[in-house]
Structure formats: structure tokens, C-alpha cells
């Protein structure tokens, strides 16, 4: 693995290499697809395990992780890149990798839908995959509030009363004077 990292460093600038729990390297946004092509064609990382994003809202960045596996070397390599986090309704943008692995299409469709990251040129990128007719903030972003959304979208069913559990138990266990038989 060290040899592979050395080979990569000859051609690409890596800003960070971590080997604590598996090997993860960080490269620049513009180099990502060429690095993936290099890893797939030259170093034998043929299997794309997953593409996913992490929302670092405090740094205003999205982290994209491409996890690759080399069946020959029996090892995994994570390629990280940081892209700018746009303010919804504007979308962040990243180059597509569907020409390297057709399976990347599905991951990119999900990222487009869930994080609002656009991959121009990726097939069916604008078709909804899981959510249909969604016009709110992409739901996997950190600033999407699930509780607020459910309170606005759904409503309590009529005829149901809810109690605060602690108050309810207190009333049950220690009924106040005069209220016991009320």
C-alpha cells in the first residue's frame, strides 16, 4: 500500500493520508476523476464499493468518499475530496464517474437527491430515485430538521390526547388533593 501511495504522489497532490482505520487519501476536486481512473486502470482497484458524502456544515464543505477495493491486493482505499457546500436551492457540483463504473450512476442519483450534489452528464441524474416530488432542502443535509418537517407535514390524529410522560406519571402516583375523585 505504501508503494501505491508513493506512485500516486508522483502524479497527484495529496493533502492528507490517514492510515488509522484503513487507508484514506484526500485529493483535490479537479484531480479526483483522473485519480480514480488511474487507480482503476493502473493500480487494479477495480471494484467500486461505494460513493458517499459527509456534510461538514461548520466548515461549509461536503466530503465525498469513493471507496475502492482491489480484489488482487485484497485491500481497500478510500479517496476523499472536499467540495464547496452550496446554499439550497443552489446545488453543489462534482464530476461524474459513471463512465468508469456503470454502478456509480445509482450512487450519484442518490447523492443528488439526498445532498443536492449535481453530477452533470450522469445518466438519469434528474430522475427521482427514492423521494418523489421533493421540493424541500435535500433531507440528508445537516440543516434539514426532521422533527420540524414531520410536524409541518403530518398532524396528530383526531381523538387522541397526548400527555407529557413525567407529568402523567406524577399525577398517577401522587394525585393532588381534591383532584383524585374529579
Amino acid at each position: 500500500m505504501e508503494q501505491i501511495i508513493e506512485n500516486i504522489k508522483k502524479q497527484f497532490t495529496l493533502s492528507d493520508v490517514t492510515t488509522a482505520h484503513g487507508t484514506y487519501i484526500t485529493c483535490e476536486k479537479k484531480d479526483t476523476v483522473s485519480l480514480l481512473t488511474y487507480l482503476k486502470d493502473v493500480e487494479g482497484f477495480k471494484h467500486l464499493v461505494l460513493i458517499t458524502a459527509v456534510d461538514w456544515i461548520e466548515d461549509n464543505k461536503f466530503q465525498l468518499t469513493y471507496l475502492l477495493n482491489s480484489p488482487k491486493l485484497k485491500t481497500e482505499l478510500g479517496v476523499r475530496t472536499f467540495i464547496e457546500r452550496s446554499v439550497w436551492p443552489e446545488e453543489s457540483e462534482m464530476q461524474s464517474a459513471h463512465h468508469l463504473w456503470p454502478a456509480a450512476k445509482t450512487y450519484q442519483r442518490e447523492l443528488h437527491e439526498m445532498f443536492g450534489i449535481d453530477f452533470p452528464g450522469s445518466p438519469e441524474i434528474n430522475d427521482p430515485l427514492i423521494l418523489e416530488w421533493w421540493d424541500d432542502i435535500p433531507p440528508y443535509r445537516r440543516d434539514f430538521d426532521t422533527k420540524k418537517y414531520s410536524e409541518e407535514t403530518y398532524y396528530p390524529r383526531e381523538g387522541r390526547s397526548t400527555n407529557d410522560p413525567s407529568d402523567y406519571m406524577k399525577d398517577q402516583l401522587y394525585p393532588r388533593e381534591g383532584e383524585k375523585n374529579a
Binding site: 464499493v49 461505494l50 458517499t52 458524502a53 459527509v54 456534510d55 468518499t65 471507496l67 456503470p102 454502478a103 450512476k105 445509482t106 450512487y107
Partner: peptide, 25 residues
């Protein structure tokens, strides 16, 4: 794929199910 940030909550958990690639593409 689990990412933690030092707090008591996970930062991101991504589940890679095998059907993800099998059932779609």
C-alpha cells in the same frame, strides 16, 4: 461506513447493501 467527530453521536453512517448495485443497474 461510519464517520465520527468526537461527539456522542455519529457524524454519518452509510450502509452499503449488496442489493444497491444488484437491483438497480
Amino acid at each position: 461506513y461510519v464517520v465520527t467527530d468526537g461527539s456522542g453521536y455519529p457524524r454519518r453512517i452509510n450502509v452499503r447493501g449488496p442489493s444497491y448495485t444488484h437491483a438497480v443497474t
